[in-house]
């Protein structure tokens, strides 16, 4: 009986990894089995042809940014964390580089600030940066005083809610009021020019109580606003009412539909039960009928005594 080698022995033979004894036995087998010999020949030929697939040009290897050699072993030797740190590519800059970068950024900010006449302001949690010449938009002392007075006046009007304090108004002559109006207009323009665009738009569209109104006009305006507010509140109430009614109506509708559905299901269940009962009665009736038939027949078939 001829020896049949394992598959791995074919490969060992092809790569010259069989011992001398194994090789002799394997070749003896090949002489006895031409099919296997052919197979080995084809494999050897194919192996010879595989090297016709040369390497392709590989892309350039990337450059890993790695700390200098001198620093590495010391850190690695002292702590485990250090050793692990060394295994990570150091994309993070070193402390000295970070400090230098922050210092450079600050210097750049100072230079830019100087060139653009930057001004920083922090007041009551409000941080502001301004660029450009601030002196041109600063208010002269006299105008600043008027502005303060006007702002106090406006505040007073706002706080009183309905009318201007007559004492404050009576202190101003017609000429003063006129001057104040002009100053106010100029000041407002300056204020607006210093506002950010979004604030400016809001400011222009604000509800304005003009200082030129007299007491009657002011009261009239307040009344008009009150009426308007009342109307709005009334509308809001109406709308809320309507919405509530609609919601209530919808809820009632849903509840009614739910009741209908339950009733339909109950009815269906009762009908089914009745039908089932009916069927049972019918069945019982038939059974009884049959039983009676059997009984009658048996009675009839008995010989009369």
């Amino acid at each position: 009986m001829k020896h049949k080698p394992e598959k791995h022995q074919f490969i060992s033979y092809l790569y010259g990894e069989l011992s001398e004894e194994e090789k002799v036995r394997f070749e003896a087998y090949l002489r006895q089995d031409p099919q296997s010999a052919k197979e080995v020949g084809e494999m050897a030929q194919l192996l010879g042809q595989l090297d016709q697939w040369p390497d392709v040009e590989a892309p350039e290897p990337p450059v890993l940014i790695i700390p200098p050699v001198a620093e590495a072993p010391e850190v690695a030797a002292t702590t485990e964390v250090g050793a692990k740190e060394l295994q990570k590519p150091h994309w993070v800059m070193r402390l000295s580089q970070g400090v230098a970068l922050i210092a450079a950024s600050l210097a750049l900010l100072l230079v830019v600030g100087y060139l653009t006449r930057m001004e920083m302001e922090y007041q009551a949690g409000d941080f502001r940066l301004r660029f450009g010449d601030q002196s041109s938009s600063a208010l002269p002392d006299g105008q600043q005083a008027i502005l303060t007075e006007l702002q106090a006046l406006r505040k007073e009007v706002k706080q009183s809610g309905r009318m201007v304090n007559p004492e404050t108004v009576s202190r101003l002559t017609g000429q003063e009021i006129q001057e104040l109006k002009m100053t106010l207009a100029r000041l407002e323009k300056q204020m607006e020019s210093r506002m950010p665009t979004s604030e400016r738009v809001k400011y222009r569209h604000r509800p304005v109580v003009r200082q030129s109104l007299n007491e009657d006009q002011f009261n009239q305006l307040v009344n008009q606003i009150s009426r308007e507010n009342f109307r709005l509140v009334e509308q809001a109430f109406e709308a809320a009412n309507e919405e509530q009614q609609a919601q209530l109506y919808q809820a009632l509708n849903q509840f009614a539909r739910h009741l209908d559905q339950i009733r339909a299901e109950d009815t269906q269940m009762v009908m089914a039960s009745l039908e089932e009962l009916d069927q049972k009665a019918e069945r019982k009736f038939q059974e009884t009928d049959q039983a009676l038939d059997v009984l009658i027949q048996s009675v009839q078939s008995q010989p009369q005594q």
Partner: peptide
């Protein structure tokens, strides 16, 4: 293995083409 990054860079340069061709094949 001891954490020498430059040595690793050198290894990468030596083995990059082989690994690339292995993956490509």
């Amino acid at each position: 293995m001891q954490g020498d990054g430059q040595a690793f860079n050198l290894l990468m340069r030596n083995w990059y083409k082989r690994i690339f061709n292995f993956a490509f094949r």
